[in-house]
Simulated assay, not measured.
Amino acid sequence: MSRKVRADIHLDAIVHNYRLAKAQAPGARAVAVVKANAYGHGAVPVARRLAAEVDAFGVACIEEALELRAAGITQPVVLLEGFFDADELPVIAREGFWPALHSEHQLEWLEQASLPQAIPVWLKVDTGMHRLGFEPEVVPAMVARLRDCSSVSDVLLMTHFACSDEPEHGMTEVQLARFSKLIDELGLAASLSNSAAVMAWPEAYRQWLRPGVMLYGATPFEQSNAVADQLQPAMTLSSEIIAVREVPAGETVGYGATYRCDKPSRIGTVAMGYGDGYPRHARTGTPVVVEGQRTALVGRVSMDMLTVDLTDLPQAGVGSRVELWGGQLPVSDVARWCDTIPYTLLTCLTPRVPRFYD
């Protein structure tokens, strides 16, 4: 390999993070969410490493679930967006997938289906996010229909929090109250806790947790959190300095001449750009680590390269290792400088970046 861009995936860190999630609610089971190619980490390698102890996997759609089955993964797989066509139902039954059910048309397809075996259904309740799910007042009737449906073996209730990553926001209490009322009324097993709720909302623990981004060592919180502080980063994104320029004061660097050197500067060019998934909108000042020391990005990110300030790092030169995020630089720190969230940075990493697993 000549171009030195790489993403090192630390599978033991993912196992640690899964165990940390389960430790928050002893006795609860947990769906390891590996949708979107395991948030950019590689769904198959991640699932294989977790398979010995995971209770179930979570994906967005049947294509992602079938990829796991083709790789030999035998655990239950929750289809978090359910099914998009009635023709998927026989495959769901055959493969042992557990679909979410969020809309009337899905329920009608299920009632009309003749399946080789009945399937568990995760009935989604809209407690206030207003994206997917049934309104709480109609849920008892939906449960009754599902119990009468020969294609359904079991019903579990689920919902999704809109603001669980903001511990001071009152929306989570509102959603939790609406959902808890239904659980008390219907007496069904339930799942509420995404990563943020696992780490910050013990009131939301029920029979099933759904850790997602926390599996990959990224925090959804802006502020410190005692559980998030124990996460281990699962990806180190790195490259190398491929050129060094001595740039006089007053000269500009990069497209658009957006960065002007205020003093004689030593500028390093790094083989990493938005073609690799590094965000083009990363601002001047976005941190990077060169030879173990923090410095900053300067100028605009281009398709294949970006530039960093080496003025105060005289030991750095061509071939110096550059960490874009990882154990020395949390991806959440980078996300803040890019006005985005860790989820985006991890999932947007392109196939051009080779993954290496340890």
Rank of each mutant, 00 (worst) to 15 (best):
I73P: 08
D87V: 10
C338P: 03
F161Q: 01
T307D: 13
I119M: 14
R19P: 01
R260Y: 09
R294N: 03
L79W: 04
V59R: 02
A197I: 08
V77W: 12
G256W: 00
A118L: 10
L11V: 08
I242E: 12
G292W: 10
V78A: 06
P202K: 12
G40T: 07
R266E: 10
A162G: 12
A36V: 05
P342E: 09
A296E: 15
L20V: 08
L237F: 15
Y274T: 02
F97H: 02
V121T: 06
Q223D: 13
L68P: 06
W109G: 02
A43Y: 01
C149W: 12
S238G: 04
E53T: 06
E291W: 01
V322A: 08
R29I: 00
G96K: 02
T172Q: 13
A200Y: 01
L306E: 08
R300H: 11
A228L: 09
I119W: 11
V44N: 07
P26M: 06
S191Y: 01
V174Y: 10
S114R: 14
A204D: 08
L68S: 07
L231S: 04
L123G: 04
V198Q: 06
A32S: 11
Y255N: 06
R260Q: 15
A100V: 14
L346H: 04
T340L: 10
V289S: 05
S195Y: 13
S150Q: 14
L349T: 14
M235G: 03
G96T: 05
H41G: 08
V290L: 04
V290S: 01
M235T: 13
L11Y: 05
A316G: 10
V155T: 11
V15M: 13
T252A: 15
A200M: 06
Y205S: 09
D312C: 06
E63M: 06
T269C: 12
A249Y: 01
E95W: 08
V289K: 01
D85I: 00
P167Q: 11
L20R: 05
A32W: 04
Q223R: 14
L346E: 07
S151R: 07
V33P: 05
T74M: 12
R321T: 13
L176R: 09
K263R: 15
W109I: 02
V138F: 03
T127P: 00
